[in-house]
Amino acid sequence: MESASISAGHAAGSHDHHGPPEANQSSRVDAQMLGMLLFIISEVMLFGAFFTAYFFTRVVNNEPWPGDGNELPVAVAGVNTAILLSSSFTMHWGLEGAKHGNRRAMRIGLLATLMLGTAFLAIQINEYVSIGFAISESAQTSIFYGLTGLHGAHVFIGLTLLFFATTRAFRGHFTEKEHRGVEIPGIYWHFVDVMWIVVYTTIYLI
C-alpha cells in the first residue's frame, strides 16, 4: 500500500501537521477508568466460571465440603481477610493523598498497601504449605486451590500494578490533577478485595 502516507482528500495541503487531532471526549467517564471497569467485569466472569465448578460439586452433586477429613483454617484465613480489607483503606488513603497533592500520604498509603498485600500472599502460601491436602486429592481440593489460587494470582497482578504506581510515585509522578496511575490500580485493588470476601465466605464460612 504505497499510497498509505498522508494523502489528499478533504485535507489537501495539510502535510505539515504532525500527530492526530484531539479526539472528541463523548463521555464523562475517563477512557482508562472505563477500560478498567470493563476488565473487572471480565474478571468477575472468570471467577464465575470457577464458582460454577464449585457450585456443581458442592450444590448439584452434594459432595461433602471441604472433602472428607479436610479442615480449613478458618481463623487464620479470617485474620488474612482483615489484612486484605485494611489494605483497601490504606489504598484509599494513598489516593486521597494524591488527590490533595499530599505526596507523603500518597507514598505511605501505596507502600502500606503493597506491604499488606504481600503479607496476605505470604500467609496464603503458608496456608497452602501447611493445609495438609494436595490439589490432586479430590474435586473439592482442586476447587479449593483453584479458587484461592485464582484469587491469589489476582492479588499478584494487583500488587504488580501497585508496584508500578509506587515506583512512579517515588520518581515524582502524579499530581493533584493527574493521578489516574494511582486511581486505576486502586480500583483493581478494591475489586480484588471484594472478590476475596466472596471467596472467603463461600469457601471457608458456609
Binding site: 466472569m45 466460571a49 470457577f50 465448578a53 481440593t141 486451590y145
Partner: peptide, 23 residues
Amino acid sequence: IATPFIAGSQFFVLFDRALGTDF
C-alpha cells in the same frame, strides 16, 4: 462478558492435564 468462561473451561482442562486436579 462471555469469553472468560471459555478461559475458565480451558483452565480446568489444563489443570486436570498438567497438575492432576480432579475437576
